[in-house]
Design a protein around this nucleic acid. Structure first.
Lengths: 169, 169
DNA sequence: TGGTCTTAGTTGTAGGTACAACCAATCTTC
DNA sequence: GAAGATTGGTTGTACCTACAACTAAGACCA
């Protein structure tokens, strides 16, 4: 164990962070759900695929990059496949593996929903902070991530938030 | 809309925060589940009740303080009642209302599980940060909460994290 | 070659949450 | 004092996630 209980200052920080943890995901989910019919996690999956070469990845690699367990990703992939946003096919090089690829409709969905999602992030998080706080937040989150498994280091992913509204071909 | 897309620095902050949002709840849930058989939210409910006078609150008040919707709280209360950790009874003053009260077993459960939960919070969050960062985090989270509805201001709740191991009577 | 271990992924199931529909009690207003 | 609106809460359903069990293919090794 790590010893003593939390001080006043520590408690204040934790209570506020816990509240953000409680409220922010709901805000992200509900904006994406009502505007695009997606959960935040589904959006992350589609968005991550849209950055991959050929819009294709191995299930395991996608799971790692989105910080999901494989069963979770498998269920979500099933659902996205039912919605015709992705398709899965066996990997030629390794018969155990499955590749998941964005469909044209899936790519379109990412392009359509990205601006609204980015605006939500900006409104609820970024614009609430000063430039200095944005920097502090980066350091703080990075420090916490180092305690949350080996993921921390590899968290540098999806650039898709600033995609200029380049319409798909 | 809030205009432009995210800059490099803004994106870095958001990607890291989003990752924390993805990973931290799972860590909290799984520690509490394996050590106490509770979700983080169930713990918050029990913990909040343990601070209330008579260990009793109105459902609506408890929902507000825990940032839950009433249907959500109702389902959770049902489950906690099945586990004999809380009990519900009609409010004498307002026949529409329901009071929820911690049972002796529920209070015991809070006392038993608090130290392990606090240690998890300390290990994964607080101890990852400098004292200055703890302060910065408080300000950052407070600023974000102001954008997440009227809740922000009223987030100053549960002190129970530093409860000295006072065994229940 | 055959046995075992590991890796990749799917499926089943149980519990959690959101949303909508619903019921009952109180308040308002005329 | 009765109609309509509002408040407090529960229930039903659909979807999401974790965890465990399972299948199948590659890797390792005697």
């Amino acid at each position: 164990m790590d010893g003593k209980s939390l001080s006043q200052q520590e408690l204040a920080a934790w209570v506020r962070l816990a509240t953000v943890l409680e409220l922010l995901p709901g805000v992200l989910d509900s904006q994406l759900r009502s505007d695009a019919g997606l959960t935040h996690f589904q959006y992350i999956v589609l968005s991550t695929l849209s950055e991959a070469p050929q819009h294709t990845m191995r299930m395991t690699a996608l799971a790692a990059q989105t910080h999901a367990t494989l069963p979770r990703l498998s269920h979500v992939a099933q659902r996205l496949q039912d919605l015709n946003l992705v398709e899965r096919f066996p990997c030629p090089e390794d018969a155990r593996a499955t590749n998941i690829r964005l469909t044209a409709a899936g790519l379109q969905k990412v392009h359509d929903s990205a601006p609204g999602h980015a605006a939500t992030v900006r409104h609820h998080v970024i614009d609430a902070l000063t430039a200095e706080q944005v920097h502090q937040l980066t350091d703080i989150a990075t420090a916490v991530l180092r305690r949350l498994g080996p993921h921390g280091a590899t968290a540098a992913s999806y650039t898709r938030y600033d995609l200029p509204a380049t319409p798909p071909r």
